[in-house]
Nucleic acid binder design. Sequence first.
DNA 1: ATATAGTATTCTAAAATGGAATGGGAGGCA
DNA 2: TGCCTCCCATTCCATTTTAGAATACTATAT
Lengths: 297, 297
Amino acid sequence: MDLQKLKIFVDLSKTLNYTDTAENLFTTQGNISKQVMALEKELGVSLFKRAHRKIEMTQQGEIVLPYAKKILLDYNELSNKLNDFQAAKNLTIEMHTIPTMPSYQSFTLITQFLQKHPEVHMQLREEESYNLFTSLKSGKCEIIFARTFDFDDSDLERIITEEDKFVAVLPKKHPLAKSEKLTISQLKNDPFLILGKSTNLYDPVIKLCRQAHFTPRIAYEGTRVDLIMQMVQNNMGISIMMQKTAQNFDSEEFSIVPLTTNIANELCFIRVKGEHSSANNLFWKYIQTNLKVLQAK
Amino acid sequence: MDLQKLKIFVDLSKTLNYTDTAENLFTTQGNISKQVMALEKELGVSLFKRAHRKIEMTQQGEIVLPYAKKILLDYNELSNKLNDFQAAKNLTIEMHTIPTMPSYQSFTLITQFLQKHPEVHMQLREEESYNLFTSLKSGKCEIIFARTFDFDDSDLERIITEEDKFVAVLPKKHPLAKSEKLTISQLKNDPFLILGKSTNLYDPVIKLCRQAHFTPRIAYEGTRVDLIMQMVQNNMGISIMMQKTAQNFDSEEFSIVPLTTNIANELCFIRVKGEHSSANNLFWKYIQTNLKVLQAK
DNA sequence: ATATAGTATTCTAAAATGGAATGGGAGGCA
DNA sequence: TGCCTCCCATTCCATTTTAGAATACTATAT
């Protein structure tokens, strides 16, 4: 059952003339004739009485007409709704991000972008690092702000906004607290207080330890950075985290010492390669441009 | 836009599995895949997110779903309505008839038929003879009861229920009132009181006169037989009509004399050759059978 | 590593489509 | 009466669509 047939039927019910309907619907008279006959066959009724100078609708035709109109209207309404939805979607950026995003300069970029483009809506959602890439690849969001370690995924493209490095967080009284630099093996006997598996920091830390041929003793694993800091202050262990995370807790009670590692680490916007909504492209270009401006300063 | 695509979409929204939907709709998995893609292309949106072990509907799919269901429901409702209509129609006989039908034995046959088949509805409508054949041929009714003269129409079939003949109706005091038989030329000087053009009696009478090489003087032309009879009684002229019409007015005040003619004349049921509703066929067969029974008596 | 479940693709024959031209019947008109 | 015109039906043909069958491809599970 093709809606085109219903369209023809409805138009024909108005014109009662095959040639006119053919013109209205940009086809030929013969085609109209065939389609109407096909529709009649499909419905099993005769829709028009053909008398040789005019045609006239049958009782069955009168039954069909309101339904045909209704169905066509519904289909149009559907088309419109979809168009509206797509238009709105084209002006909406759904971004998933690590919870700490507001502490980075990327946040400034986002707020500036939104001020400059008030027509664009941004839906930000915090999500555990662990899930960000899944959400991105499954299409739940079209862009993420995440921390990467040794990034290597040819399906994705990214804009690095900041680089970060590993630091050790030590109690003030720790023997190595005054060091200028540390390697992780120097800490192999300390209890580790680290961010858990639901962050994407866990795996790189374990990897670092493994590279240094030891398995850390994990005294805390969780998501609360402030809690870790308190535990360090209280001599319950040491922590490995990112410098930019640690510096938010600048305190007299513990030391932050850079760690020598070979693991690249960046904060970046990431999206899949390929087609994107116009708002997304607008945002992407804005970030690329204004990041250079920022860095030039 | 083919409704089949919507059907597939709706079913797929339930199963979320191409193979299952293919089975439900008696087709193949590959076909489902193609149709869904075609639908997506046609609507310009993606309806399902394909993840490699399961598929999931998109937001756009959620928008489409209620419309698809509604359209399919409407189409089903339409089908049902048409079926009901056809079924009712199949049990209804629409018969147009000359006004005098109740005076013939055909009327008895009809009432007997309706008693025997109470499920059949008969819609009788009186119509002027002149229009009966037009109504029949244009499909306004599927069967007529009419009077025929020299019937010859290969598109129609008929059952003759009674034969009739022309009679002259004369005032008692008319010089020819006592004749056993008359030819029409014997009446050429009398004023004619005849049934008008809207009956199909007018033309045959004129034809009879023309065959006898005279043009009658028409003193009355109309549809009221009773009026004609009164006029005859009052010596205002003579009339030519059918015997069975005349004998309903059996009176002492005028004579009915058979007329010698070569014009065949019958009362009959007539329908177009070809397909008919079951009720119509039932009726036709009933008349054929029971007419023989009647005639055998 | 292999099997499995699930969608996409390709190939092919059959069917539907649509355009153009032709057929054919009834009404209008001279 | 005969011609013309209006209109729906039909036919021919090239193009497109369709549906089935087999095959490819890929992520998950074992």
